[in-house]
């Protein structure tokens, strides 16, 4: 209870998920610094010249195309200037216009492909700038660690779009544990899964199991099962494991896949979760539940045999 009281209520900005991660990256037109944070003002030079990288790539592609057209126009003009007769001049003029017209039409048709090439080239040519920009963003985020945790988390969340490492994930998780989490918050879980056992991640999963079970999916269940002994040893570990077992009950696929986990903590499940589990096993008696069905029947007999909620469908005998 004390732990909950020390948590801060926050209203996190919604996370805009883009189709491709590079769409979050911006570049300064003036100093060519890259950043994933900031709207229009460059964090490096302070000028309002930030544009999305796609826009910069399009500019680069169009610039190259215009240069090509300019060269073609120059060659055409030279040919006209070198004409000795009016007929030659007219023919050269017409030929130049036709050829430049063809070039322009082809350029229009290939613009999209050229923009993508320019984007790839932009990243490869500015690899160090991109890396430096992200590091700069990370440092700017950490500067807010003590003064504005919400802002710090929001910045780290953006940076983690491109930087995938456990250090950032753990920092995000540490910050999340200082917030009072609510169901309506834009939370995530799978991107925050780390490779090793991390108590702060387990606590976070435990919280999500209560307020946003739908975020707990296969990778999370596998993580929990991999570190089950360590989790049992941490504070409220059993409660967290029970809550995660309760989260499996929302889908038959999860109960079947992680029947061992569910079986070990079925006894402590809240009534509504156990009822759902019981009804699932009743509804699909031919599924391969392993030893789970025996355990569920045992718990039912011990705790809920006379409970009216369990009698609505349970008219058959349930002897083991």
């Amino acid at each position: 209870m004390n732990k909950r009281n020390s948590k801060t209520p926050v209203f996190l900005k919604s996370y805009d998920k883009t189709k491709y991660r590079y769409e979050k990256l911006k570049v300064c037109k003036k100093c060519h610094a890259f950043t994933i944070l900031g709207d229009t003002t460059c964090p490096n030079c302070g000028k309002p010249h930030l544009i999305p990288v796609e826009e910069q790539a399009e500019r680069n592609a169009k610039h190259a195309m215009h240069t090509t057209v300019l060269i073609a126009v120059c060659i055409g003009l030279i040919s006209i200037l070198l004409s000795s007769t009016l007929l030659q001049m007219v023919l050269c003029g017409i030929a130049s216009i036709v050829l430049i017209g063809v070039l322009w039409i082809v350029q229009r048709n290939v613009l999209d492909a050229e923009c993508l090439r320019a984007l790839d080239k932009l990243f490869h040519a500015n690899e160090k700038n991109v890396q430096d920009g992200i590091i700069h963003d990370y440092k700017a985020a950490i500067d807010n660690w003590d003064t504005d945790k919400q802002r710090c988390y929001e910045m780290l969340r953006e940076i983690s779009t491109l930087l995938h490492n456990d250090m950032i994930r753990i920092r995000q998780l540490t910050l999340l544990q200082t917030f009072l989490l609510r169901k309506d918050m834009d939370l995530e879980l799978e991107p925050l899964l780390v490779r090793k056992y991390e108590p702060v991640l387990v606590e976070y999963i435990g919280e999500l199991a209560k307020i946003k079970r739908d975020l707990i999916k296969d990778r999370t269940f596998q993580y929990i099962m991999a570190y089950e002994p360590e989790i049992m040893g941490q504070e409220q570990g059993r409660d967290i494991l029970t809550a995660v077992a309760g989260a499996t009950v929302r889908m038959k696929h999860y109960v079947r896949s992680y029947s061992g986990l569910v079986r070990r903590y079925a006894y402590n499940l809240p009534k509504d979760r156990f009822l759902r589990l019981y009804q699932m096993i009743e509804q699909y008696p031919n599924e391969d539940w392993g030893r789970l069905s025996e355990e569920v029947m045992r718990i039912y007999t011990e705790k809920y045999q006379w409970d009216p909620d369990f009698q609505q469908k349970g008219q058959r005998g349930h002897t083991i």
């Binding site: 060659i75 055409g76 040919s79 070198l82 030659q88 050269c92 130049s96 050829l99």
Partner: peptide, 8 residues
């Protein structure tokens, strides 16, 4: 002139 048209 025609040479340059050829080049173009």
């Amino acid at each position: 002139a025609y040479v340059f048209i050829g080049i173009l």
